[in-house]
Amino acid sequence: MKLSELTRPWSAFSYGFLDESAKREIRRRILKAIAVPGYQVPYASREVPIARGWGTGGLQVTLTLLKPDAVVKVIDQGADDSVNASSIRKFVSRVGGTVETGDTTQATLIQSRHRIPEEKLREDQILVLQVPNPEPLRPVQPDMSVAREMHADADYGQLWLILYEQLVRSGRIMQGASYPSMVNGRHVMTPSPIPRWDVPKLNRADHLTILSAGREKRIYAVPPYTSVEPLVFDDVPYRVEDHQDKACWRSGVRGFFMNELPQEDGSSLYELSDSHFGIKHIRKAAGEAVSIGETWYRNGRMAR
């Protein structure tokens, strides 16, 4: 063996920042995550040039999947122009030379924090969700080794118990975002802190979702056409946020997830949380040729 076989000409970074050995590791983990939907696959999770907790898990998956003809959309809280989404997008295009887009229907790869776009994703699209805490059992069991055994035994009784306690105490299930959901009838996962509004979009979806927690070093996945069922009691139906009647003050569009904007007079205004979806509506209203994709929700209700 010669030294030249072990090395290559010096360059500051590889394409996509991660070197091949880091990418191979993530590839192996992604395949296992797809093979066992909802099961959290541990991975090494290398440091990347943005801070931990700021989307490094999602970023490592995006960087692994990156190729020059990828069309990448990055959103944070539904918005493309959010500062951290801008920072991640800038990094991805810096190390990947990829095409950027805000348009959900144009993207091949969407990295998102806390939202799933309102326009339906297709079979050829990949959604990468950033995950702060991958462990749905954390509220009942902070020890990860014990939580792992509980997943092994499909022992989710304590999760049901906290939902039941909420019902007894408040008369409602109080879980806001990160609603625990059963995947493929076997593993409970946290869908990441997406609102309840977005969880049904994962159920038997056309697209592939990869969820990645960089700090906690876990990757899991929801393949297309896989059941994702929020944990609910038979007699207490799953309820999304009451946003079906709210209208966006900018675009006038109704029936989608909104940001609430408190006003000085004590009232609130609402605007579409999916910012580029809003922009498309405004441009269309202004007479531009804009095509708006099919949406998951119609008239404020999940369409099936």
């Binding site: 907790g53 809280q77 806390h114 109080m174 806001g176 509004w197 700090r215 909104m258 940001n259 949380s273």
Partner: peptide, 29 residues
């Protein structure tokens, strides 16, 4: 150190979607 410091400062990031979701549950009650 990288994980704990990163997570600590990440709380500066907007969390208004999750907050909205919690607010909805509280208002309902």
């Amino acid at each position: 150190a990288v994980e704990s410091s990163g997570f600590c400062v990440h709380f500066k990031l907007p969390h208004y979607v999750t907050f909205q979701s919690h607010l909805d549950a509280l208002r309902r009650v």
